[in-house]
Lab assay of single mutants.
Amino acid sequence: GLPPGWRKIHDAAGTYYWHVPSGSTQWQRPTW
């Protein structure tokens, strides 16, 4: 699974990851 606080988001551009507490997003899968 993903580290705490991360969500996987799907949209028209593809899949990305959202860090809910900080509001940051990234294309790379977050690592622990």
Rank of each mutant, 00 (worst) to 15 (best):
G1R: 13
G1T: 11
G1I: 11
G1V: 11
G1Q: 13
G1S: 12
G1D: 13
G1L: 14
L2R: 03
L2T: 02
L2Q: 07
L2F: 03
L2Y: 04
L2P: 06
L2A: 06
P3L: 03
P3R: 02
P3N: 00
P4I: 03
P4E: 07
P4N: 05
G5D: 06
G5T: 01
G5S: 02
W6M: 01
W6V: 00
W6I: 00
W6F: 02
W6S: 01
R7F: 09
R7N: 06
R7L: 13
R7D: 07
R7V: 15
R7H: 12
R7G: 02
K8M: 14
K8W: 10
K8T: 11
K8I: 15
K8Q: 14
K8F: 09
K8R: 12
I9Y: 06
I9L: 07
H10I: 14
H10M: 13
H10E: 14
H10D: 13
H10W: 08
H10Y: 10
H10F: 10
H10P: 06
D11Q: 06
D11K: 07
D11I: 11
D11R: 07
D11Y: 06
D11N: 11
D11S: 15
D11T: 15
A12E: 13
A12L: 10
A12K: 12
A12W: 08
A12I: 10
A13Y: 13
A13V: 10
A13W: 14
A13Q: 12
A13N: 15
A13L: 14
A13S: 13
A13H: 14
G14R: 06
G14Q: 06
G14D: 06
G14S: 05
G14A: 05
G14L: 07
G14H: 06
G14P: 03
G14V: 07
G14I: 07
G14N: 05
T15Q: 07
T15K: 05
T15E: 12
T15P: 07
T15L: 08
T15V: 12
T15F: 08
T15H: 08
Y16K: 06
Y16I: 08
Y16Q: 04
Y16F: 09
Y16L: 09
Y16V: 07
Y17N: 00
Y17M: 00
Y17Q: 00
Y17W: 06
Y17S: 00
Y17V: 01
Y17R: 00
W18Q: 12
W18G: 03
W18I: 15
W18F: 14
W18H: 10
H19D: 05
H19V: 03
H19Q: 00
H19Y: 06
H19E: 02
V20M: 10
V20G: 07
V20T: 08
V20E: 15
V20N: 04
P21K: 08
P21V: 11
P21Q: 09
P21I: 10
S22P: 03
S22W: 04
S22Q: 02
S22A: 02
S22E: 01
G23P: 00
G23H: 04
G23N: 09
G23E: 03
G23D: 06
S24N: 14
S24I: 15
S24F: 14
S24M: 15
S24D: 13
T25Y: 11
T25F: 14
T25L: 13
T25E: 08
Q26F: 04
Q26E: 06
Q26P: 01
Q26H: 05
Q26A: 05
Q26R: 06
W27M: 15
W27D: 12
W27P: 12
W27S: 14
W27I: 15
W27R: 15
W27Q: 14
Q28F: 08
Q28I: 09
Q28N: 09
Q28R: 08
Q28M: 08
R29T: 13
R29E: 14
R29H: 11
R29K: 14
R29L: 12
R29F: 13
R29V: 13
P30H: 02
P30F: 01
P30V: 00
T31G: 11
T31A: 10
T31K: 09
T31P: 07
T31N: 09
T31D: 11
T31V: 11
T31L: 12
T31H: 09
W32S: 09
W32R: 08
W32Q: 10
W32K: 08
W32P: 08
W32D: 10
W32I: 10
W32E: 09
W32N: 10
